[in-house]
Computed example of a mutant assay.
Amino acid sequence: MAGFEAPPPGETDFGFTPYHRALWQCGRCRHIVNVHAMDLEGIYDADYWDRTYGGTKMAETFERIMSLPPEKSDNRARVERVDGVARAMASLPAPGDLLDVGSGLAVFPAAMREKGWSCVALDPDARGAQHARDRAGVQAVAGDFMRVDLDKHFDLITFNKVLEHVLDPVAMLTRAAGFLKTNGVVYVELPDGEGAIVESAGREEFFVEHYDAYSVASLSLLAVQAGLQVDLIERVREPSTKYTLRAFLVRPGIAG
C-alpha cells in the first residue's frame, strides 16, 4: 500500500543501507505491518541510548514533559484515564501496585506515583532504571521483561507504546498475565494504524522501529491470543496529534 526508499521526515536515521520497506494492510482486520529486511534487533543498543538520552537529555526531556499543562500532555491525559478505569475495574478502594514495562523516560510511573500508586518501572537499560529511581522517585528494575525475575504480583501492568517494538507481543502479554493479581488489569497503548493511515503513510505511527500498527480488531485478537479478555478499547487523538489505541485487558471471566 506504500513504500519507502529513505526514512520519512521525523524518523530516526539508524543508518540502514540500503533502506527499503513497505507497509502492508490486512484487508479484513485493517492491521498494518512494516515489511522489510532491515535488522532492528540492535537499534536499541548503548549507542542509541547515548544518542537519544546521553548527557543531560533524558533529565531535561523528563522535566519538560512533566511540566506540560494537562491540555497539552499525552502523559497527563493517559494517567487520568488509566488511574480511573483501572481502579474501577480492579475494584481498588485506593491506588495499588503498578508495573510499567518499558518505562523509558518514566514520566508515566512518575505521574502515577503522584496519584498514589506504588510503582515499579522496568527498563532494559540500567541507565533508564537509574533515571526512574532518581527522577521519577519510583522503584526500578533493569532487565528484559521476558527474563527478569519479579517477586510480586500487580494490580496494574502497563505497556505504553511498547508492544509495537517487539517481535512477539503475544508472548509478552502472556507473561504479563502471570504477574497479575486476581482482579488485575493490563493496560496496552499502541499506535492506531487504522486511523493514522487515512492521513499519511509517512506518519510516526508507521516509522521503521514499529513492527506493527494496530486496528481495533487486531488489538482485540492480540489480547485473545495472549489468553486475555478485552474489557475496554478506546480510539483517541492525543494532544501531540498521535493516533492511539488504548485497551484495558483482564483475565477471562473477570470483566464486568
Rank of each mutant, 00 (worst) to 15 (best):
A136G: 06
A136Y: 12
G137C: 12
V138Y: 00
V138H: 02
V138E: 02
V138N: 01
Q139E: 12
Q139N: 06
Q139H: 13
A140D: 08
V141Q: 09
V141Y: 09
V141F: 03
V141K: 11
V141G: 07
A142E: 09
A142I: 14
A142P: 08
G143L: 10
D144F: 07
F145P: 04
M146D: 11
M146F: 08
M146Y: 09
R147M: 11
R147I: 06
R147K: 14
R147N: 13
R147D: 11
V148K: 13
D149A: 15
D149W: 14
D149M: 15
D149N: 15
L150M: 02
L150Q: 05
L150K: 02
L150A: 00
D151P: 04
D151W: 13
K152C: 14
H153P: 12
H153F: 14
F154A: 01
D155H: 11
D155V: 02
D155Q: 03
D155M: 06
L156F: 10
L156N: 13
L156I: 05
L156V: 09
I157F: 14
I157H: 12
I157N: 05
I157G: 00
I157A: 06
T158A: 15
T158H: 14
T158Q: 13
F159T: 00
F159C: 07
F159W: 05
F159M: 10
F159K: 10
N160W: 09
N160R: 13
K161F: 07
K161H: 09
K161V: 04
K161P: 00
V162E: 00
V162F: 04
L163F: 01
L163H: 04
L163M: 05
L163C: 07
L163V: 03
E164W: 01
E164S: 05
E164L: 05
H165P: 07
H165E: 11
H165A: 04
V166A: 07
V166E: 03
V166L: 07
L167E: 14
L167P: 06
L167W: 10
P169F: 09
P169N: 02
P169L: 05
P169M: 04
P169T: 03
P169G: 02
V170M: 08
A171Y: 03
A171M: 10
M172D: 00
M172C: 08
L173C: 02
L173F: 04
L173N: 05
